[in-house]
Write a protein that binds this DNA or RNA. Sequence first.
DNA 1: TTGAAAGCGCTAACAT
DNA 2: ATGTTAGCGCTTTCAA
Lengths: 337, 337
Amino acid sequence: MSQIRKPPTMADIARVTGVSPMTVSRAFKTDSLISKETRDAILKAAEDLGYVFDATASNLRSQKTDFVAVTIPSINNANFADTVGGLSETLAARNMQILLGYTNYDMQEEERLIEQLLRRKPEAIVVTGGKHTARARKLLENAPIPVIETWDVPAEPIGRFVGFSNAGVVRGMVDHLVRTGYSRIAFIGGDVGRDTRGSDRRQGFLEAMRQHGLDTSRLIAAGPPPISMREGANAMARLLEQFPDTEAVICVSDLSAFGALTECQRRGMRVPEDISIGGFGAYEIGSICVPTLTTIDAHARDIGRKTGSLLLDILDGKQDVGDVLIKPQLIVRESTR
Amino acid sequence: MSQIRKPPTMADIARVTGVSPMTVSRAFKTDSLISKETRDAILKAAEDLGYVFDATASNLRSQKTDFVAVTIPSINNANFADTVGGLSETLAARNMQILLGYTNYDMQEEERLIEQLLRRKPEAIVVTGGKHTARARKLLENAPIPVIETWDVPAEPIGRFVGFSNAGVVRGMVDHLVRTGYSRIAFIGGDVGRDTRGSDRRQGFLEAMRQHGLDTSRLIAAGPPPISMREGANAMARLLEQFPDTEAVICVSDLSAFGALTECQRRGMRVPEDISIGGFGAYEIGSICVPTLTTIDAHARDIGRKTGSLLLDILDGKQDVGDVLIKPQLIVRESTR
DNA sequence: TTGAAAGCGCTAACAT
DNA sequence: ATGTTAGCGCTTTCAA
């Protein structure tokens, strides 16, 4: 039977060690001036008592939490996971902890989440995307901490941003395919209204196609995000039925692109001989599947790292901090000619 | 220029509204008894002032944080992401927030992380796996909160566990392959000492093969976890060189299994005609690639959900709570005969 | 239904 | 190098 007893506090350690609570507090800071003997005695007593530092009390008194709040659409997405990884990596140097929330690609949920996260008094907040509900915007604008938007170039940035144009990225892919000689190009993904990055990519497709004077009707919505491999496959099936003469397809992500690829394989179609496929995100699968996928690398981990160092600069009071424009990179592989 | 000013507190709202701080506090609780007019006035004032509730202060005073600490090996793993998703889903009903940390498959890092997380005074802690450093064990044993180990059946459980035998799971796959008529079976993955679940699976392979009186030498280490698709492909290449007559391969995960599959495809080998491949984890890719992958579904999301409800039961003081033994399920698909 | 007093565990600020 | 005092913003507890 484990005894239910109140966990020891610094006061308890102070009593045992015969010093003041303040001295105990100092013993736990690395930089504070305190004699080695006193500190050793205190740390030993703490160990003996099974003391666990209370961050809550410390946070309240010092008005610092070392939290950085982060919202991402989904935990289960290698791109966003990489961004969080890069951010985490950078912030670890300052012992800051990430407080993570998932919006499930839903702006309402994002609003709820932002409010929730701000209550924890983070030192900064990082959100994915540059579009938010009016209330979420207001919450972020009023928050007394740095705000960074990522994975987008916001129309009206709230604080700083680290991102790229989602429309521009697809435009680059269209330009490449047109240069290669294709004209009957389709787009899979980008449900309207929900996934703002997906919509932006769809929009970029439309604009680019119009600019080239090409038919923009080959659009297959793949449902609400996240777009799975299965949905990519289903969308490809519909595309092939509706527009059998399509020469090339741009998919909203490598995952849906892979699904589309498998659909072709099951139908005995050759990629890229019978149809070309392009994806987005430089997921590992695109570099290893047969054929490998032409894609766009948005440098997800880099977004996280740069967000982290931008954040640290702002928190350090640096004056010359600016937005970071990420340059996504087209990677041409076997799935396109 | 945004003005730096101290954010408003309940006391500020109280002053503006002409009530006591305590009444303001009550206005923010749904169940508290307070007149509708008073509450409305308070909520309006709060909105006007841009008030944000301070969870830190609330936590300190009430000695409740509504945090549940969770450690997983990696954020970028669909299985663990699903478990966290299931847990998150279940805990949302109680407005509990997950405090997530990544061990990077490293027990030292896990120890560091557990210590860090406990300082935030969570109401419970959930760890992945049943093996820990001695110090981590002690921290967990001494923690005045429920401890749940997942994704394993610990030799000596610290609190409760929600998991399955990783060795047993591979044993089941071996048995299936032997029943199908294979005898020259290989195992890819399971670096010794680092990824404990991977090692356990490798161990399960060895035991099962011995039980069937079969050769256990077809072992290809794929390096430290997480084992990527690329590493799966490389391991398959080595396997085919060292043991060209192998009939079937069990991979430590679907991701490495897919990598192995692509290596076969690049060599012009047919799966399952020339060689069979089995994976683990029921990742989406295994259900859609060509051929689809035989795998084992560990019910990752279910692990999270059941961990959540077990946790809530314990926190509610229920007396009859027990461990949860998950039954992984063999899913036979196209990659094996 | 509301208020007053006290204090959660720590640390900023000042003193010695 | 160490101690004293006060207080971070909220909520428990008791009272009215």
